[in-house]
Protein backbone atom coordinates (compact mmCIF):
# COMPACT_ATOMS: atom_id res chain seq x y z
CA UNK A 1 0.00 0.00 0.00
CA UNK A 2 1.21 3.46 -0.82
CA UNK A 3 -0.79 4.96 2.00
CA UNK A 4 1.21 5.26 5.20
CA UNK A 5 0.71 2.54 7.84
CA UNK A 6 -2.60 2.99 9.71
CA UNK A 7 -0.76 2.60 12.99
CA UNK A 8 2.28 4.91 12.87
CA UNK A 9 5.40 2.82 13.58
CA UNK A 10 6.39 2.86 17.26
CA UNK A 11 9.82 1.57 16.41
CA UNK A 12 11.74 4.04 14.26
CA UNK A 13 15.07 2.62 13.18
CA UNK A 14 17.35 5.38 12.03
CA UNK A 15 20.76 6.95 11.96
CA UNK A 16 22.28 9.73 14.05
CA UNK A 17 25.10 11.38 12.15
CA UNK A 18 27.70 13.39 14.04
CA UNK A 19 28.88 16.32 11.94
CA UNK A 20 31.46 17.13 14.61
CA UNK A 21 33.44 13.94 14.21
CA UNK A 22 32.86 13.07 10.55
CA UNK A 23 36.22 13.41 8.80
CA UNK A 24 34.83 13.18 5.27
CA UNK A 25 36.67 9.98 4.32
CA UNK A 26 33.74 8.64 2.22
CA UNK A 27 34.22 5.16 3.69
CA UNK A 28 30.51 4.96 4.59
CA UNK A 29 29.52 5.80 1.00
CA UNK A 30 31.98 3.33 -0.52
CA UNK A 31 31.12 0.48 1.84
CA UNK A 32 27.40 1.17 1.32
CA UNK A 33 27.90 0.74 -2.41
CA UNK A 34 29.99 -2.37 -1.79
CA UNK A 35 27.45 -4.08 0.50
CA UNK A 36 24.30 -3.05 -1.31
CA UNK A 37 25.45 -3.97 -4.79
CA UNK A 38 25.12 -7.51 -3.49
CA UNK A 39 22.29 -6.85 -1.05
CA UNK A 40 18.51 -6.32 -0.95
CA UNK A 41 18.42 -3.94 -3.95
CA UNK A 42 21.28 -5.51 -5.89
CA UNK A 43 22.86 -4.61 -8.18
CA UNK A 44 23.69 -0.90 -7.84
CA UNK A 45 24.49 -0.41 -11.49
CA UNK A 46 26.94 2.03 -13.05
CA UNK A 47 26.96 3.62 -16.47
CA UNK A 48 30.37 4.13 -18.04
CA UNK A 49 32.22 3.10 -14.86
CA UNK A 50 35.59 3.46 -16.55
CA UNK A 51 34.52 6.01 -19.18
CA UNK A 52 34.61 9.77 -19.55
CA UNK A 53 31.70 10.51 -17.23
CA UNK A 54 30.91 7.66 -14.87
CA UNK A 55 27.47 7.68 -13.27
CA UNK A 56 25.96 5.19 -10.90
CA UNK A 57 23.57 4.31 -8.11
CA UNK A 58 24.74 5.35 -4.63
CA UNK A 59 22.56 5.26 -1.50
CA UNK A 60 24.89 7.43 0.54
CA UNK A 61 26.92 10.45 -0.48
CA UNK A 62 29.27 12.75 1.43
CA UNK A 63 29.01 16.45 0.65
CA UNK A 64 31.44 18.97 2.11
CA UNK A 65 30.27 22.44 3.05
CA UNK A 66 31.89 25.60 4.32
CA UNK A 67 29.85 27.49 6.89
CA UNK A 68 30.67 30.94 8.20
CA UNK A 69 33.72 33.08 7.50
CA UNK A 70 37.08 33.88 9.02
CA UNK A 71 37.92 32.55 12.46
CA UNK A 72 34.30 31.42 12.92
CA UNK A 73 34.24 29.56 9.60
CA UNK A 74 34.04 25.76 9.58
CA UNK A 75 34.47 23.02 7.03
CA UNK A 76 31.77 20.42 7.64
CA UNK A 77 31.64 17.00 6.02
CA UNK A 78 28.03 16.06 5.50
CA UNK A 79 27.02 12.46 4.74
CA UNK A 80 23.47 12.11 3.44
CA UNK A 81 21.32 9.05 2.83
CA UNK A 82 17.59 8.30 3.13
CA UNK A 83 16.17 9.83 6.32
CA UNK A 84 13.30 7.28 6.54
CA UNK A 85 10.81 10.08 7.26
CA UNK A 86 7.67 9.73 9.39
CA UNK A 87 5.72 11.60 6.68
CA UNK A 88 7.47 10.40 3.52
CA UNK A 89 6.08 12.18 0.46
CA UNK A 90 7.99 9.68 -1.69
CA UNK A 91 5.64 6.94 -0.43
CA UNK A 92 2.29 8.70 -0.76
CA UNK A 93 2.96 9.92 -4.34
CA UNK A 94 3.77 6.41 -5.56
CA UNK A 95 1.03 5.40 -8.05
CA UNK A 96 1.70 1.66 -7.84
CA UNK A 97 2.19 0.79 -4.17
CA UNK A 98 5.82 -0.16 -4.84
CA UNK A 99 7.02 2.39 -2.28
CA UNK A 100 6.06 1.62 1.27
CA UNK A 101 6.85 2.41 4.88
CA UNK A 102 7.10 -0.59 7.18
CA UNK A 103 4.81 -0.57 10.19
CA UNK A 104 7.17 -2.74 12.25
CA UNK A 105 10.25 -0.50 12.13
CA UNK A 106 9.48 2.57 10.01
CA UNK A 107 11.94 1.68 7.26
CA UNK A 108 10.99 3.01 3.80
CA UNK A 109 11.51 0.51 0.97
CA UNK A 110 10.75 0.00 -2.72
CA UNK A 111 9.40 -3.22 -4.21
CA UNK A 112 11.44 -3.64 -7.41
CA UNK A 113 8.87 -6.04 -8.87
CA UNK A 114 6.03 -3.49 -8.95
CA UNK A 115 7.94 -0.20 -9.44
CA UNK A 116 7.16 1.23 -12.91
CA UNK A 117 10.09 3.67 -12.84
CA UNK A 118 7.97 6.84 -13.10
CA UNK A 119 10.50 8.70 -10.92
CA UNK A 120 7.79 10.75 -9.17
CA UNK A 121 9.07 9.63 -5.73
CA UNK A 122 12.45 11.17 -6.53
CA UNK A 123 10.67 14.45 -7.35
CA UNK A 124 8.74 14.30 -4.09
CA UNK A 125 11.76 13.69 -1.83
CA UNK A 126 13.29 17.02 -0.73
CA UNK A 127 16.55 15.35 0.29
CA UNK A 128 17.61 13.50 -2.85
CA UNK A 129 17.44 10.10 -1.19
CA UNK A 130 16.00 8.28 -4.18
CA UNK A 131 18.26 6.74 -6.80
CA UNK A 132 17.00 5.72 -10.23
CA UNK A 133 18.68 2.68 -11.72
CA UNK A 134 18.86 3.40 -15.46
CA UNK A 135 19.65 -0.23 -16.27
CA UNK A 136 17.04 -1.95 -14.08
CA UNK A 137 14.46 0.79 -14.83
CA UNK A 138 13.34 0.98 -11.20
CA UNK A 139 13.89 3.29 -8.24
CA UNK A 140 16.26 2.17 -5.49
CA UNK A 141 17.16 3.62 -2.12
CA UNK A 142 18.84 3.12 1.25
CA UNK A 143 17.33 0.03 2.92
CA UNK A 144 18.84 0.74 6.36
CA UNK A 145 20.63 -2.53 5.53
CA UNK A 146 17.60 -4.68 6.38
CA UNK A 147 19.72 -7.57 5.11
CA UNK A 148 22.22 -6.94 7.94
CA UNK A 149 20.27 -5.60 10.91
CA UNK A 150 18.03 -8.70 11.17
CA UNK A 151 20.61 -11.13 9.79
CA UNK A 152 21.17 -13.94 12.27
CA UNK A 153 24.07 -15.27 10.24
CA UNK A 154 26.07 -12.24 11.29
CA UNK A 155 27.71 -11.68 14.66
CA UNK A 156 25.43 -9.54 16.80
CA UNK A 157 27.85 -6.61 16.75
CA UNK A 158 27.69 -6.60 12.93
CA UNK A 159 23.89 -6.32 12.81
CA UNK A 160 24.02 -2.60 12.05
CA UNK A 161 23.96 -0.76 8.72
CA UNK A 162 27.27 -1.13 6.96
CA UNK A 163 27.86 2.64 6.91
CA UNK A 164 27.78 2.57 10.73
CA UNK A 165 30.11 -0.40 11.20
CA UNK A 166 32.63 0.94 8.71
CA UNK A 167 32.91 4.51 10.01
CA UNK A 168 36.47 4.95 11.36
CA UNK A 169 35.49 8.06 13.32
CA UNK A 170 32.35 6.60 14.96
CA UNK A 171 30.41 9.48 13.47
CA UNK A 172 27.41 7.29 12.64
CA UNK A 173 25.07 5.77 15.20
CA UNK A 174 22.19 3.35 14.60
CA UNK A 175 19.23 2.64 16.83
CA UNK A 176 15.55 3.08 17.63
CA UNK A 177 14.68 6.77 17.59
CA UNK A 178 11.09 5.93 18.54
CA UNK A 179 12.30 4.84 21.98
CA UNK A 180 13.11 7.94 24.06
CA UNK A 181 15.48 5.92 26.27
CA UNK A 182 17.56 4.37 23.50
CA UNK A 183 21.22 5.38 23.24
CA UNK A 184 20.62 7.25 19.99
CA UNK A 185 17.68 9.18 21.47
CA UNK A 186 19.81 10.17 24.47
CA UNK A 187 22.60 11.24 22.13
CA UNK A 188 20.17 13.41 20.20
CA UNK A 189 18.99 15.04 23.45
CA UNK A 190 22.49 15.63 24.81
CA UNK A 191 23.97 17.02 21.62
CA UNK A 192 20.99 18.96 20.26
CA UNK A 193 20.35 16.65 17.30
CA UNK A 194 18.18 18.23 14.61
CA UNK A 195 16.10 17.57 11.46
CA UNK A 196 17.15 18.61 7.97
CA UNK A 197 14.70 21.06 6.32
CA UNK A 198 11.98 20.77 8.97
CA UNK A 199 9.94 23.27 6.88
CA UNK A 200 9.29 20.49 4.35
CA UNK A 201 7.12 18.69 6.91
CA UNK A 202 8.56 15.22 6.20
CA UNK A 203 9.51 14.64 9.84
CA UNK A 204 12.74 12.76 9.10
CA UNK A 205 13.73 9.99 11.52
CA UNK A 206 17.48 10.37 10.95
CA UNK A 207 19.02 13.14 13.03
CA UNK A 208 22.17 15.23 12.65
CA UNK A 209 24.39 16.31 15.53
CA UNK A 210 25.80 19.82 15.02
CA UNK A 211 29.54 20.53 15.11
CA UNK A 212 30.59 21.35 18.67
CA UNK A 213 31.54 25.00 19.36
CA UNK A 214 35.04 25.81 18.20
CA UNK A 215 37.62 25.85 20.98
CA UNK A 216 39.14 29.22 21.80
CA UNK A 217 42.37 28.98 23.87
CA UNK A 218 44.00 26.08 25.65
CA UNK A 219 42.89 24.37 28.84
CA UNK A 220 44.67 25.10 32.18
CA UNK A 221 47.93 23.14 32.31
CA UNK A 222 49.55 25.30 35.00
CA UNK A 223 51.76 27.09 32.49
CA UNK A 224 51.63 30.92 32.42
CA UNK A 225 49.31 32.37 29.81
CA UNK A 226 52.29 34.14 28.24
CA UNK A 227 56.01 34.38 28.88
CA UNK A 228 57.43 37.55 30.58
CA UNK A 229 58.86 40.14 28.22
CA UNK A 230 62.48 39.37 27.55
CA UNK A 231 64.33 42.00 25.58
CA UNK A 232 67.79 40.71 24.76
CA UNK A 233 70.13 43.55 25.89
CA UNK A 234 73.67 44.24 24.72
CA UNK A 235 75.97 41.40 25.37
CA UNK A 236 77.79 42.04 28.64
CA UNK A 237 81.37 41.17 28.21
CA UNK A 238 83.03 39.29 30.99
CA UNK A 239 85.10 41.52 33.31
CA UNK A 240 88.55 40.18 32.63
CA UNK A 241 90.60 38.07 30.31
CA UNK A 242 91.71 38.34 26.73
CA UNK A 243 88.22 38.50 25.18
CA UNK A 244 87.16 41.23 27.60
CA UNK A 245 90.21 43.25 26.59
CA UNK A 246 89.32 42.77 22.88
CA UNK A 247 85.77 43.81 23.55
CA UNK A 248 86.75 46.92 25.45
CA UNK A 249 89.33 47.86 22.84
CA UNK A 250 86.95 47.44 19.90
CA UNK A 251 84.07 49.20 21.68
CA UNK A 252 86.03 52.41 22.06
Amino acid sequence: MTSLPLNPPKKKLGLVIDLDTCVGCHACAVNCKEWNTGGHSAPLTDLEPYGESPLGVWFNRVHTFEAGDGAEGRTVHFPKSCLHCDEPACVTVCPTGASYKREEDGIVLVNPDTCIGCKLCSWACPYGAREYDYIDGVMKKCTMCIDRIYNENLEEQDRVPVCVSTCPASARHFGDLGDPNSEVSQLVRERGGYDLMPEMGMQPVNKYLPPRPAKRGAGDTGAPASLPDHEPGPVEAAGSGFLAWVDRTLSR
Partner: peptide, 20 residues
Amino acid sequence: GLGHLGKVRLFEAPHTGDNY
Protein backbone atom coordinates in the same frame (compact mmCIF):
# COMPACT_ATOMS: atom_id res chain seq x y z
CA GLY B 1 21.17 22.87 9.57
CA LEU B 2 24.48 24.75 9.68
CA GLY B 3 23.05 28.27 9.41
CA HIS B 4 24.03 29.11 13.00
CA LEU B 5 27.67 29.03 11.86
CA GLY B 6 27.09 31.57 9.09
CA LYS B 7 26.57 31.48 5.33
CA VAL B 8 26.67 27.88 4.02
CA ARG B 9 28.27 27.10 0.66
CA LEU B 10 29.25 23.89 -1.08
CA PHE B 11 32.98 23.21 -0.81
CA GLU B 12 33.14 19.80 -2.44
CA ALA B 13 30.41 17.86 -4.23
CA PRO B 14 30.15 14.14 -3.36
CA HIS B 15 31.88 13.21 -6.61
CA THR B 16 33.47 14.87 -9.60
CA GLY B 17 30.95 13.42 -12.05
CA ASP B 18 27.24 13.74 -12.69
CA ASN B 19 24.51 11.74 -10.96
CA TYR B 20 20.85 10.86 -11.46
